[in-house]
């Protein structure tokens, strides 16, 4: 009775069956076919496919305008975003991060003269031009506080659903494992963007209210109009988001390993802190380029003239490598693991 032959199996909804031909148990072909057809468009006409034999398939509402793969993905992403951006915990983290630049600005405004770090120093620059408050704020938040916020959201994303038991219902819906993971990651990246934008915007507004505005003098001494400087700020937001997105990939991979969200969050934060420590040990210079936080601070490349794109692109390359590596790990783990929570 017990059969031990290896089995071939479609892991993902909508994926074509692996192992070549459409060998299926005949009794269930028609309905499965109707679902596949509904999900991935007209495939019933592929050669070798047993299309819609037997009793007529039940009608699946395809022409509803709401069930195409893209629109279904967006709908699920929308659901995910509304969970993330309505959750008080996440809003509180965004608020705290946005308040930091305001506090920094007020402190510099009140005590700037006492803190002055000499001509050309960053504080001097802030009091000279409010635009620089955003750089000071990001420099202060990027090493630790922003990563913590990102870790909380990204590391919670799969493990949190697992611990609540909602993961089994999402997958039975069936959300599809690859699809669910993609939604979770895109959601985390958008949260990274929200974090970077919230800090930058709060800093810009505070800086421009409390300090003089005007043409921005870059590190190389060249002055550019404020409008151009604001455009460069967009590059900064993009770069910081990419750096945080790389961390989100690491956090997501950790999140697929456990059913305890707090464990995944703590592991991510510990990882950030320990790599930050490794970075400042001079004897470990060789490993520096491989450490993620090493690249986070390079957004000040936009303060050079012309913009030091070389610095930015090597940072982006590192982020891309991290996203690819840990994204693959997360995928490999999540698509093969038994969901017993």
């Amino acid at each position: 009775m017990s059969k031990v032959e290896p089995e071939v199996r479609d892991v993902e909804a909508g994926e074509p069956p692996r192992g070549g031909g459409p060998r299926r148990i005949p009794g269930l072909v028609p309905v499965a076919e109707s679902r596949l057809t509904a999900e991935v468009g007209p495939r019933a006409d592929l050669p070798g496919r047993i299309a819609l034999q037997g009793p007529p398939a039940l009608p699946v509402p395809t022409q509803d305008g709401g069930t195409g793969p893209v629109s279904a993905f967006l709908r699920m992403l929308g659901s995910e975003l509304s969970l993330t951006f309505r959750r008080p915990r996440n809003l509180a983290m965004l608020a705290v991060l946005a308040v930091v630049p305001v506090i920094l600005g007020v402190v510099l405004r009140l005590m700037g003269d006492d803190l002055a770090d000499g001509p050309g120093g960053l504080i001097q620059q802030v009091t000279g031009n409010g635009f620089f408050l955003s750089f000071i704020s990001l420099s202060a938040l990027v090493p630790l506080l922003m990563p913590v916020a990102v870790a909380v959201v990204a590391a919670d994303s799969v493990a949190g659903e697992a611990s609540a038991g909602t993961l089994r219902y999402l997958l039975a819906a069936p959300a599809g494992r690859t699809r669910l993971l993609a939604v979770k990651y895109v959601n985390a990246v958008l949260f990274c963007l929200a974090v970077a934008s919230a800090v930058s915007l709060a800093a810009l507004v505070t800086g421009l209210i409390l300090f003089p505005a005007g043409p921005v003098t870059l590190l190389s001494g060249v002055a550019i109009p404020l409008g151009d400087a604001l455009l460069r700020m967009l590059i900064v937001i993009g770069y910081v988001t990419a750096g945080m997105a790389a961390l989100a990939a690491v956090a997501l991979a950790l999140s697929t390993l456990t059913e305890a969200p707090i464990g995944a969050i703590a592991a991510t934060v510990v990882l950030v802190i320990s790599t930050q420590v490794l970075r400042v040990i001079p004897q470990l210079d060789v490993v520096q380029p491989y450490l993620l936080p090493n690249w986070w601070g390079d957004f000040d490349a936009v303060l050079r003239d012309p913009i030091a794109f070389d610095d930015l692109s090597s940072g982006l390359l590192a982020f891309g490598a991290y996203i690819l590596l840990f994204g693959s790990l997360a995928w490999a783990r999540f698509t093969s693991k038994d969901i017993t929570s």
Binding site: S2, K3, V4, E5, E7, R9, V11, A13, R24, I25, G27, L28, V31, A32, S34, R35, L58, V60, A164, G165, T166, R168, Y169, L171, A172, A173, P174, S336, D338, I339, T340
Partner: peptide, 27 residues
């Protein structure tokens, strides 16, 4: 429901979107 991968053997079931399930209590 495709949550756990069998070690061996096979199964066939109505496609999942047409299956409603309550597994191990509400979540």
């Amino acid at each position: 429901l495709g949550l756990v991968t069998p070690t061996s053997g096979s199964y066939s079931v109505v496609p999942l979107p047409r299956v409603g399930a309550l597994v191990e209590g509400p979540a």
